[in-house]
Write a protein that binds this DNA or RNA. Structure first.
Lengths: 349, 349
DNA sequence: CTGAAAGCGCTAACAA
DNA sequence: TTGTTAGCGCTTTCAG
């Protein structure tokens, strides 16, 4: 065993992995200052290539990794984007709702690509009035994405002036101050109703809660088209929580199909439940009843018959949200984005 | 206007909201030291109730919120749990989308309840060998949940000794060192095959990739049962990425149903695709072909006919993972949890 | 009960 | 090209 090897062993002995916890520890081993290590690890061109490589090799060898929190504190940024999901009164498992999750998946992809981490928080506004300020003021995030306005439109407006780095998924209202990305829900509703009527519907039932602003707009659009075309329309309040919703759908439908031959489901998840109940009842689509959903979730193409629906481009939406947010984090401004919905003709209308 | 009001206004003037950014700023206003403010905001009983209330009122008034990162750095903990999703080759999901999303939803609920935030990271092990150490060593998380072992079993084992605060969703192997929560996949596979055979199947096709350890175990269990009962069985490799999978299923089935009258789908998502394709082909279940899925995702009960499947209790799994992780974060040890699968009889077998 | 002081681990002027 | 130094904003002894 050479002297060199012995020396190395000695070092190993004296410096087990665990003892190299800070940049200063590593500096001691490398025989340089903490500043140099910091620069080397950041690939700064200020440090000589040879020492940089040596230090990086050492870091690998000892499994050293600089403490992010200290770095964050010092640099006053985190590399983390917050994603908040406000749950309304309907607080049961909205977070596992397919739409949110699909959107979340795309957001995660986009943010990861851009080098950001994603901090997820499920909030219950009713239980904690202060959720927005808390998240923003936590110092843990550089920017915030809010998925769904729920009933928090006003609070979002309040915050928008003071805090720029926020983008919300939801419905756009003329003159609003918070930056929003979303589909033109009103237009989507119109397309749905027009399709149902074109397919022969003489009376339309809207299944969904018209309270949340997005759904309200969908209903409003459908109502507008229906009135214009002289077709009656009525809303049947429906929750999003799967179990509750299935019960409601099962209760509504038997009576409903006596008076209505066109159904506009506020979301595909409701649409799927309707489809299932209709199958149970032996009702045939699209001759006896027509059905149009909303979202074009993956599942919509896999039902039997496949669901005619209004497509929201969730992926494009996620990309827009991230783009706008990063621009805002960088200190620039950005307008809201309203995406056009698209009628996807399949087997139910 | 009273003198008091004037005084307040003066203060407002001199101290606009934005100027109160640190605990020291607030201390200046309150006329106490930073330490006292810190204690007051933490509801410490060391500080006199009256001053505590006064300081908290002031904090509310100025919208002050202590910087988490500084607090984290000082206390050496973050209140954040990392959730990592390893994606396999080509970014094709190892864990099916819906399954993962359902699990994530429950994890978010559980962690939020316990006062933890959730930091989500999708990782591509092939592209970044170092993903695990990076996440753990980032200093941003108190503990780590990994969803799906993918092909990272060995790396997880390597890490398990040095890092206790990690819990993995996946398959349990005798004597493994990393803490895992999951279903007994082998038993699940056996239940599926036994059901298919009991329902009259004379030859079984397994649709799924046997590479990932969870799916491998499902196939192994089915194989064991089939061999014991003298029924031939064969695996047809199937990806989880929805588009790819649908193509594969569409290609397999026409030939497949000539030789096989029992289908075991490695996941419900594959099962739904099979159902869809079968409907297209006009094949009737369960007389001509029997089908059993795996997971019991919400969608399984909503297909037509509803899907017979092997249930994993995802919610209980999420709860276990969080429980075990918190125990480990607190410095205790904890064993792995293997949950029993359950056959859910519905319309396809 | 409160204040003063010493850092948590890192980065970025500013010097050398 | 590198070292030195001064904090980022907070918590927590240790004295009073």
């Amino acid at each position: 065993m050479s002297a060199r090897d012995e020396f190395d062993d000695l070092c190993q002995e004296k410096r087990p992995k665990d003892s190299v916890r800070t940049i200063t520890d590593l500096a001691g081993i490398a025989g340089v200052s903490a500043g140099t290590v910091s620069r080397a690890l950041a690939n700064s061109s200020l440090v000589k290539a040879r020492t940089r490589d040596r230090i990086q090799a050492l870091a690998r060898e000892y499994g050293f990794r600089p403490n992010q929190m200290a770095s964050n504190l010092r640099r006053q940024k985190t590399g983390v984007v917050g994603v908040a999901i406000p749950l309304g009164h309907d607080r049961h498992q909205q977070v596992s709702d397919s739409f949110f999750m699909t959107l979340l998946g795309h957001l995660a992809d986009e943010l990861t690509d851009k080098g950001f981490d994603l901090m997820l928080r499920r909030v219950i506004p009713d239980r904690d009035e202060d959720w927005l300020d808390k998240f923003i003021g936590s110092g843990m995030i550089d920017g915030l994405i809010v998925i769904g306005q729920s009933d928090q439109f006003d609070r979002l407006e309040d915050v928008a002036d003071g805090y720029r780095a926020m983008v919300v998924w939801g419905n756009h209202r003329e003159g609003q101050r918070h930056c929003v990305v979303g589909t033109d829900n009103r237009l989507g509703g119109r397309l749905a109703a027009e399709r149902l009527i074109a397919d022969g519907a003489k009376a339309i039932a809207f299944l969904g809660d018209t309270g949340p602003i997005e759904f309200g707009a969908r209903f409003a659009g459908a109502q507008e088209a229906a009135q214009r075309l002289g077709v009656p329309i009525k809303a049947f309040p429906t929750h999003l929580s799967r179990d509750v919703m299935q019960g409601e759908v099962a209760r509504y439908l038997p009576g409903l199909i006596k008076d209505y031959d066109g159904i506009f489901a506020a979301t595909d998840t409701i649409g799927v439940a309707v489809l299932h109940q209709l199958a149970k009842m032996g009702v045939h689509l699209p001759d006896q009843v027509r059905l149009v959903g909303f979202d074009d979730l993956p599942i919509a193409s896999q039902t039997n018959p496949p669901l005619t629906t209004i497509r929201q481009d969730i992926r494009a939406g996620a990309q827009s949200m991230v783009d706008l947010l990063l621009r805002r984090i960088a200190g620039h401004t950005s307008e809201s984005v309203v995406m056009p919905p698209q009628l996807i003709l399949r087997g139910t209308a």
